[in-house]
């Protein structure tokens, strides 16, 4: 087995994908346990990484533990490949694991993400790795780990339902728009990481394996492929996905998650896709269609 990075001059003392093999084995064990108990937070001995806690160390450790030389990696932050932290993490693995990287969702075997799920449906030969800041969905209702652990053990989720009910009583609707809690495989209530609730339906029966890494909080959890993931709601107040009133100003897509971009100091703004790869693809399609139409018109 050749785990050392080939070029001895540059990185002589670091293993393939930075972490040593013992540590990777420990993380893989935690991942296997997490897959066996969907939605359950498995404690693991998170290591210091060469990037700060809160900047994706959990996701980076999960990726480092499962990435192989054959993998093609995509890293997104806020849906975009070119945000600073995504650039930094992609460069980290390009350097320490020498893997191919891509910005195209369809071409990646491994996607590390912060705050979004790609618009394009994932397939069963892909793995999605989430960076998670606070893995405990009950944390802001009960700050103590000793208590929340008990609540999960006893499947005691009344507190969460009371919170959602209070939202409705106060506002007429559930006032949680991101990190919207879900129930996985009918058992554990799970935090989907701070993705907008717009993305929640994509987690349900997803073909790809979804892994969640929280470095600072030392937890790993997982949603295996084809697993039920249900957003918590009430019969008379069903879960609703955020809808946008206008299409993307660049590609014209409807039904994609949009970012608001301020254009000037007079409050003018436009809405564009947050998933940059998806947006570019749609723009290419649009151009092609326009080309086809022009061709047809010219020949007819």
């Amino acid at each position: 087995m050749n785990d050392e990075v080939g070029d001895g001059e540059v990185l002589a003392s670091y293993n393939f994908a930075y972490l040593d093999e013992q540590t990777k084995r420990m993380i893989r064990r935690a991942i296997l346990k997490a897959i066996a108990i969907p939605g359950y937070q498995v404690p693991f001995a998170s290591r210091e990484m060469p990037m700060p806690y809160g900047w994706g160390t959990g996701g980076v450790q999960v990726t480092a533990a499962i990435i192989g030389p054959e993998d093609t990696l995509k890293v997104i932050d806020q849906g975009a490949d070119d945000t600073t932290n995504a650039v930094s993490i992609r460069a980290f693995f390009a350097k320490t694991a020498r893997v191919k990287t891509t910005m195209q969702t369809g071409k990646a075997t491994l996607i590390q993400t912060r705050h979004r799920i790609p618009e394009e449906a994932l397939t069963n030969d892909q793995i999605l790795v989430y960076q998670v800041p606070i893995p405990e969905p009950l944390r802001f209702l009960e700050p103590r780990e000793t208590e929340t652990r008990k609540m999960h053990g006893l499947e005691e989720y009344g507190l969460m339902h009371v919170k959602l009910y209070e939202d409705i009583a106060k506002n007429g609707h559930i006032a949680t728009t991101y990190a919207y809690p879900v129930k996985v495989a009918g058992r554990y209530v799970m935090d989907p990481s701070p993705t907008p609730k717009f993305d929640n339906p994509k987690m349900n029966q997803c073909e790809a394996l979804q892994l969640f890494g929280a470095g600072r909080e030392k937890r790993i959890y997982a949603v295996p492929p084809y697993t039920n993931v249900v957003s918590l709601d009430f019969e008379d107040h069903p879960f609703e996905v955020t809808k946008f009133e206008e299409p993307c100003a660049l590609c014209g897509s409807e039904g994609a998650y949009l970012d608001e971009v301020i254009l000037d100091d007079k409050g003018h703004k436009m809405f564009v896709c947050s998933d940059t790869d998806y947006c570019e693809k749609q723009q290419r399609k649009k151009m092609q269609n326009l080309g086809e139409e022009a061709k047809q018109r010219a020949f007819s």
Binding site: P52, Y53, H115, P196
Partner: peptide, 29 residues
């Protein structure tokens, strides 16, 4: 403090996806 500073300083990272959801919510409210 390595954990603390990391998480406090991660607020510098972009959060516009979450913020977008919150914008919508505040407008509705």
């Amino acid at each position: 403090n390595v954990q603390a500073t990391g998480f406090v300083e991660h607020l510098k990272l972009p959060h516009y996806v979450d913020f977008q959801s919150e914008l919508d919510l505040v407008r509705t409210m």
